[in-house]
């Protein structure tokens, strides 16, 4: 792998659940529970999982928008986990975020040009005519016309708004862009435009993406490597092709089998798991997936499987077959 731009080690985020008049703590939400991964320069790591799996909390923790309970976040080798707000400021330039909802992520009372120019102004990188020229250039880069700078967010379509968000993220010339479900709220035909734009920009600038989505096809398309999360933990991580062709964790297999394929002759959708995702408040013991797993053994209820290498950088956290995640025979 190339030199690591971002290294996350044993990241954990717990939220207390309080109830009653005295706001006594009655439980803990295990939003993220010991997540580790590394992201190389120019690489895209996809983070998939269903709602409540903690993927968005990972994204926000990396940017220190959420304070992690424990663990370490290293950006270009430097530990940024415990930096104060002031110390963090210069690092903010190297990491940016694009959110899911292009309607809520733009201040409705600011012009598009002011929104995109704000990061540059805040960091005192340019002002006046120079600022305007830079914003105009950013607009062109994301496929908007510079004359649209004076318009307000409500005058843009969903796809155009997402372009504005991308331009804002690009403004500080970051090395890492965290994309939190950036195309989930968009129409299919617009989704393709934004995905293509993200890929083109990566080729031009060489930055890294931490790409979070629930849509496996989108993640597969844009990522180099993919990590699958379930209830706050990474259960499997591998190169994209390896993961999709050779999924080892029973959860990954269930996830892949659930995707409806746009081909009427392809096999019909097969729900490989029953029931719903358990609550992240006091999640199941041992392997968190054991309550829904087809192959669950007695051990799975008590033993928490570690993420181990099953060859060629394919890591999986499952007790089946000495930790390779491979069932003996698929029933």
């Amino acid at each position: 792998m190339t030199e690591a731009l971002l290294e996350v080690t044993d990241l954990t985020k717990h939220y207390p659940v309080r109830a009653g008049v005295l706001r006594r703590q009655v439980g803990t939400v295990h939003a993220v529970d010991g997540v580790s991964f590394a992201l190389g320069t120019g690489e895209t790591l996809g983070l998939v999982g269903e709602s409540g799996c903690g993927k968005s909390t990972v994204a926000r923790s990396v940017l220190r928008l959420v304070e992690p309970t424990s663990g370490q976040i290293r950006l270009r080798g430097e530990d940024i986990t415990h930096l104060s707000k002031a110390e963090l400021r210069p690092h903010r330039r190297s990491m940016q975020i694009v959110f899911q909802d292009p309607f809520a992520s733009l201040n409705p009372r600011m012009t598009a040009g002011d929104i995109v120019g704000e990061p540059i102004a805040v960091h005192g990188l340019a002002s006046g005519k120079a600022l305007e020229a830079r914003v105009a250039k950013l607009f062109e880069q994301v496929g908007l016309r510079p004359d649209q700078m004076r318009n307000f967010p409500h005058q843009f379509s969903g796809g155009q708004r997402q372009r504005i968000c991308i331009a804002r993220a690009l403004a500080l010339e970051p090395r890492l862009i965290v994309c939190d479900e950036p195309v989930s709220a968009l129409d299919v035909s617009i989704q393709a435009q934004v995905i293509n734009l993200l890929i083109d920009l990566q080729r031009q600038h060489g930055f890294s993406y931490l790409f979070i989505a629930h849509d496996l096809a989108v993640v597969a398309h844009i990522s180099h490597r993919v990590a699958v999360m379930y209830l706050g933990r990474i259960v499997e991580i591998a190169d994209k092709d390896e993961l999709f062709r050779n999924p080892r964790h029973p959860y990954t297999q269930a996830l892949l089998a659930s995707v409806p394929i746009a081909n009427p002759h392809a096999k019909k959708i097969a729900p490989l798991v029953d029931g719903d995702v358990p609550s992240p408040v006091n999640p199941p013991s041992g392997c968190a997936f054991h309550t829904r797993c087809r192959f669950a053994m007695e051990r799975c209820k008590t033993e928490r499987p570690a993420l181990v290498d099953a060859g060629a950088g394919h890591q999986v956290a499952c007790l089946l077959n000495e930790g390779t995640g491979r069932p003996n025979a698929i029933p």
């Binding site: 926000r60 940017l63 928008l65 963090l88 400021r89 903010r92 330039r93 990491m95 940016q96 975020i97 959110f99 899911q100 909802d101 809520a104 992520s105 733009l106 201040n107 704000e118 990061p119 805040v122 960091h123 968000c165 804002r168 403004a171 500080l172």
Partner: peptide, 17 residues
């Protein structure tokens, strides 16, 4: 809680601003 406020935080803007 709006994302545009989070976006402002992520560019390093001060709370007062």
């Amino acid at each position: 809680e709006q994302p545009f406020v989070e976006a402002a935080k992520s560019i390093g803007m001060s709370e007062v601003r």
